[in-house]
């Protein structure tokens, strides 16, 4: 049992190799990158990191922006989805099933098609460079899957539970607060993480809504580094940005692996 499974190693190499290449690039000088097979004077450097951390705005600004946006999206999504999911479980089966079907097609809809018209709205309302405003369309895109996941968790609760709590004199809010939400905590957790990762990674809408340097999210900022010149991409600095930008997600995946797996599985199967 103590032997290492060679297949496991193969999977790890497949998943990690491109990332390790970024790590290597981020610590290399540009001479080392352009002449990898010949002797160069200075091969390793921290300059790439120093460069992006001293840029204007500094790189951690984008990390903060992405965190704010992802957290606000997750919170809005949960606040709207939990009551909606609960109310679906109270609908007659026929209506509830059709409703779920609509939600599923919304969840599967290639949302990239929506971004032009959404941009028009953002321009009209003048909310283009506002991170909190951006979390509204993000929430709308996340709600379909969130409602499906959470309502299936409500469905799994014992039948008379909600009714019994109501007869005990708890009002709707108290039932959510003390009985229902605590019991579906696993589903809420996996939903939150999926929504968080979606908002952290979303690109087309963020690209069109955000233009001011200091409100950019991580994916847009990184794409900008690449777009700064047609002929040469500053790969060293870019790789350093990749490494720093990957660390938060690395931590999220390592800690919440179980919730992510259960969210993806339930989302696909029960939806």
């Amino acid at each position: 049992m103590n032997k290492i499974n060679p297949w496991f190693v193969a999977i790890c190499i497949w998943s990690l190799a491109p990332l390790l290449w970024q790590l290597y690039t981020s610590f290399s000088t540009s001479e080392a990158l352009t002449m990898p097979l010949s002797e160069v004077e200075k091969r390793w450097t921290f300059d790439n990191y120093i460069q992006i951390l001293n840029a204007e705005p500094p790189f951690w600004r984008y990390l903060i922006n992405s965190t704010i946006l992802s957290l606000s999206t997750t919170i809005i999504t949960l606040i709207l989805s939990i009551p909606a999911a609960y109310s679906i479980t109270k609908l007659p089966t026929f209506i509830a099933n059709n409703f779920k079907r609509v939600l599923l097609s919304a969840a599967l809809f290639p949302y990239v098609l929506l971004f032009l018209a959404l941009l028009e709205v953002a321009r009209k309302l003048n909310i283009g460079n506002n991170l909190l405003a951006l979390s509204i369309p993000y929430s709308a895109l996340s709600i379909p899957l969130a409602v499906l996941l959470i309502s299936s968790a409500f469905n799994d609760l014992p039948d008379g539970l909600d009714e019994a709590a109501r007869l005990e004199g708890l009002n709707l809010f108290q039932r959510f607060r003390y009985i229902l939400v605590p019991l579906i905590r696993p589903a809420v957790a996996s939903t939150s993480i999926l929504v968080f990762i979606f908002s952290w990674n979303e690109y087309p809408i963020a690209l069109t809504w955000l233009s001011k340097e200091n409100v950019l999210t991580l994916p847009v900022a990184i794409a900008r580094i690449a777009g700064s010149s047609v002929y040469s991409v500053p790969y060293g600095a870019y790789a350093a940005a990749t490494v720093l930008g990957s660390i938060p997600l690395l931590i999220v995946v390592m800690i919440f692996q179980k919730q992510i797996v259960s969210g993806l599985t339930k989302g696909a199967i029960k939806g």
Binding site: S15, L16, P18, L19, W21, Q22, I197, W200, N201, Y203, L218, P219, V220, I222, A223, I225, A226, V233, Y238, A239, T242, G245, S246, L249, L250, V252, V253, Q257, I260, V261
Partner: peptide, 14 residues
């Protein structure tokens, strides 16, 4: 799971 979780933009540039 990592490749799935990382932003597409990051790895596209990678």
């Amino acid at each position: 799971l990592l490749p799935w979780a990382l932003p597409t933009t990051i790895m596209a540039l990678g």
